[in-house]
């Protein structure tokens, strides 16, 4: 009986060593590490952050990584004020913010911002002019853009959103957004709202698109990883992580991990475009 247990134990130890060495990878630097990394900010970044954190924490259970949303504005602010170790932003922080807080920027992915509608909606293509007119309220019925005779329900994001800023700059050409637009607080909340509302229009990070919503071709180009990568799809931006001063310790390792082959693979798996 005892020998059997010993054998099992031996097998287990062998398997564990074997499996870890098989994973000999970009995660190695986290082995035996302990500590905490606090991350907040851009909500487009969250899927990648979560997956990276999951892998790191599986390997080194003593590392605690907490990931919060809040929007790009929150990411820049909290990183700058030292409340979090890494602040994510879906837009480049302003020169003023960079110098005021002493921010260091790390752009580890490229992302598109896509116009989305409910899958039940038959409208699948809009021009830049139509999108801008819909958002100012000039076009307020789906029948004017080839859909059913129903009022268009507008969804936008709050002022802190990097996704909003990119969309506003590049899709709306800094045009007005009608006052009756609903506000969602994250990419996830936007997706949930659009998937529930058959007459909605909104916009999310390309990495967040799945079957619960339908992406709309913008000026004839369907937003996807490929079209963003080739530069055909014009509404794109970098995904940044910011630290106050040069990163050190665990934070540095985390950021380095995002740029490794494995980290960039996570980026691609989550629907974004790798930078390496």
């Amino acid at each position: 009986m005892r020998s059997r247990i010993l054998m099992l134990l031996g097998a287990a130890i062998f398997f564990m060593t074997f499996s870890t060495s098989a994973m000999a990878s970009d995660l190695d630097s986290f082995k035996g590490e302990k500590g905490e990394i606090k991350i907040a900010g851009g909500t487009a970044h969250i899927p990648v952050m979560k997956e990276a954190a999951r892998r790191i924490m599986t390997l080194s259970p003593d590392v605690q990584i907490s990931i919060a949303g809040g929007g790009s504005g929150v990411g820049i602010k909290q990183a700058g004020e030292g409340l979090v170790d890494i602040g994510n932003s879906g837009k480049k922080p302003s020169e003023d913010e960079i110098s005021r807080y002493g921010l260091h920027l790390f752009q580890w992915a490229i992302d598109g911002v896509a116009v989305i509608v409910n899958p039940a909606n038959k409208v699948r293509a809009l021009t830049q002019q139509q999108v801008a007119d819909i958002y100012t309220g000039k076009i307020s019925n789906w029948k004017d853009v080839g859909g059913v005779d129903k009022q268009i329900n507008l969804y936008t994001r709050d002022e802190a959103s990097g996704t909003r800023e990119v969309f506003w700059n590049q899709a709306l050409k800094k045009g007005e957004i009608a006052a009756n637009a609903n506000f969602s607080v994250s990419n996830g909340a936007m997706k949930a709202a659009i998937s529930q509302d058959p007459f909605a229009i909104g916009y999310v990070s390309v990495g967040h698109i799945d079957e619960s919503v339908a992406a709309v071709a913008f000026d004839g180009v369907i937003p996807s990883r490929e079209t963003v990568k080739e530069g055909k799809y014009s509404i794109a931006r970098g995904l940044y992580s910011c630290t106050k001063g040069a990163p050190a310790g665990l934070t540095k390792k985390f950021l380095e991990y995002l740029f490794t082959e494995e980290g960039q693979q996570i980026v691609v798996e989550q629907g974004f475009i790798a930078v390496k």
Partner: peptide, 9 residues
């Protein structure tokens, strides 16, 4: 307050 709080200080 919750929505604007995230804006630049």
């Amino acid at each position: 307050i919750a929505l604007v709080f995230a804006a630049d200080n």
